[in-house]
Lab assay of single mutants.
Amino acid sequence: TYTYKLTDEEASRRAEDEWRNRGYDVRVRNNNGTWEVEVR
């Protein structure tokens, strides 16, 4: 499981799409203004 911490929502969406396209399960959540993109 990888977790990315990003401050930019758009960057988190791009990361989400990119990993999803590669067949990974992705979750995005906002934690106090930081976007966490979790990849498994």
Rank of each mutant, 00 (worst) to 15 (best):
N31T: 09
S12A: 15
W35G: 00
T7H: 13
G33K: 03
Y4R: 00
T1S: 13
R22F: 05
E9R: 06
D17S: 14
Y4S: 02
N21R: 14
T34N: 08
S12F: 08
N31L: 12
V28F: 04
A15L: 15
S12R: 05
A15I: 15
R22N: 05
Y2G: 05
R27W: 10
R22H: 06
L6T: 14
W19L: 07
Y2S: 05
T7K: 14
E18N: 08
E10H: 08
E38G: 02
R13E: 04
A15P: 02
N32D: 09
T7E: 14
R20N: 04
R14S: 07
T7C: 15
E18F: 15
V26W: 00
R29Y: 13
E36R: 03
T3M: 09
Y24V: 03
W35A: 01
R27P: 03
E38H: 08
T1K: 10
Y2E: 06
D25R: 09
D17Q: 15
N21L: 13
V37K: 00
R14N: 08
R40I: 12
T1Y: 14
Y4E: 05
R20G: 03
T3S: 07
W35S: 00
E16D: 03
R20S: 05
R14M: 09
Y2P: 04
T7P: 15
W19M: 05
R13K: 11
Y2I: 13
T3P: 03
T7G: 13
E18M: 15
V39T: 01
D17F: 14
R20P: 00
E38N: 05
D8E: 06
D8M: 04
N21W: 06
G33L: 02
N31K: 09
E16Q: 12
D8K: 02
W35R: 01
V26A: 04
S12G: 09
E36N: 04
W19A: 04
E38K: 05
Y4W: 09
E18Q: 11
R40T: 12
R29S: 12
R20M: 06
N21S: 14
R20A: 05
G33F: 03
Y2H: 11
N30P: 07
E10N: 09
N32F: 06
T7M: 14
A11W: 06
W19R: 00
Y4V: 07
R40S: 13
R27S: 13
V37G: 00
Y24Q: 02
K5L: 14
E38Q: 09
V26G: 00
T34H: 09
A15H: 11
A11L: 07
Y2C: 15
L6G: 07
T1H: 11
A11I: 05
V39C: 12
R29V: 13
W35D: 01
D17R: 15
E36T: 10
R20L: 07
Y24P: 01
D25N: 10
K5E: 10
R29D: 04
N30Y: 15
R29M: 10
E9P: 07
G33E: 04
D8A: 04
E36S: 05
D8V: 03
G23Q: 02
Y2Q: 08
D8C: 08
N32T: 03
N31E: 08
E38P: 00
R14V: 10
A15D: 05
T1L: 11
T1M: 10
T1A: 11
Y24I: 03
V26F: 02
D17V: 15
T34Y: 13
T34V: 15
V39H: 02
T34Q: 12
V37E: 00
G33S: 03
W35P: 01
R22K: 11
E36F: 13
E9M: 07
G23C: 09
Y4K: 03
Y4D: 03
R20F: 04
V28T: 06
W19S: 01
D17G: 10
R40E: 06
V39E: 00
E16Y: 14
N32H: 08
T34G: 06
E10S: 09
A15T: 11
V39L: 05
N31Q: 08
G23N: 03
V39P: 00
R29T: 14
R22S: 05
N21Y: 07
D25V: 12
T7I: 13
N30K: 10
E18H: 14
V37A: 02
G23R: 01
V26D: 01
E36D: 04
Y24E: 01
V28D: 02
V39N: 00
N30H: 13
R40N: 07
K5F: 15
N32V: 03
E16M: 13
R22D: 03
E38S: 09
V39M: 02
A15F: 14
R27T: 15
E9D: 04
V28N: 02
W19H: 02
S12Y: 07
G33W: 02
S12W: 07
N21Q: 13
W35L: 03
A15E: 07
E9K: 07
N32K: 08
S12P: 01
R14K: 12
E18K: 11
T7L: 14
D8S: 14
E16H: 08
T34A: 09
R13G: 04
E18C: 15
L6M: 14
L6E: 06
T34C: 07
D8Y: 04
D17Y: 14
T34L: 12
V37P: 00
T1N: 09
R22Q: 07
T3K: 09
E16V: 15
W35V: 02
R22P: 00
E38W: 07
R14A: 11
W35Y: 07
T34S: 10
D17P: 01
V26L: 00
R13F: 05
R27L: 13
L6H: 12
V28M: 05
S12E: 03
N21T: 10
T34M: 12
E16F: 13
N30S: 08
N31I: 14
V26M: 00
A15N: 04
V26S: 01
D17H: 13
T7S: 13
G33Y: 02
V37M: 06
T7Y: 15
V26H: 01
N21E: 10
R20D: 01
R29L: 11
A11E: 12
N21D: 09
D25S: 10
R13P: 01
E10K: 09
D17M: 15
V28Q: 02
Y2D: 04
R22M: 10
T3Q: 05
Y24R: 02
T34I: 15
R29N: 09
Y2N: 06
T7V: 13
R40V: 10
A11M: 08
N21H: 10
R20W: 03
R27V: 15
S12L: 11
Y24H: 05
R29Q: 09
E36Y: 14
R13W: 07
S12C: 15
K5A: 11
E16G: 11
E10G: 08
V28G: 02
G23P: 01
L6Q: 07
T1P: 09
K5Y: 15
R29A: 07
G23W: 02
R27F: 13
E18I: 13
D25E: 14
G23F: 02
V26T: 05
E18Y: 15
T34W: 12
R22I: 04
R20I: 07
E18A: 11
K5S: 12
R29F: 13
G33M: 03
R14Q: 10
V37Q: 00
V26I: 04
R22G: 04
N21V: 08
A15Q: 06
R22L: 12
D25W: 12
R13L: 08
L6V: 15
D8L: 04
D25Y: 10
N32I: 03
Y2M: 12
T7F: 14
V28E: 01
T3C: 15
N30G: 06
E38L: 10
Y4I: 12
E18G: 06
A15Y: 11
N32Y: 05
N30T: 06
D8W: 04
R14F: 09
A15R: 05
W35M: 02
T34K: 07
T3I: 14
R27A: 11
N21G: 11
R20H: 05
T1E: 07
E38V: 13
V28I: 11
K5W: 14
T3R: 09
V37T: 02
R40M: 11
L6Y: 15
G33C: 06
E10T: 09
E16T: 10
G33Q: 04
D25M: 11
D8R: 02
D8T: 13
Y4T: 03
S12V: 15
L6S: 09
Y24A: 03
E36H: 07
S12K: 05
G23S: 01
Y2F: 13
W35Q: 00
Y2V: 13
V39A: 02
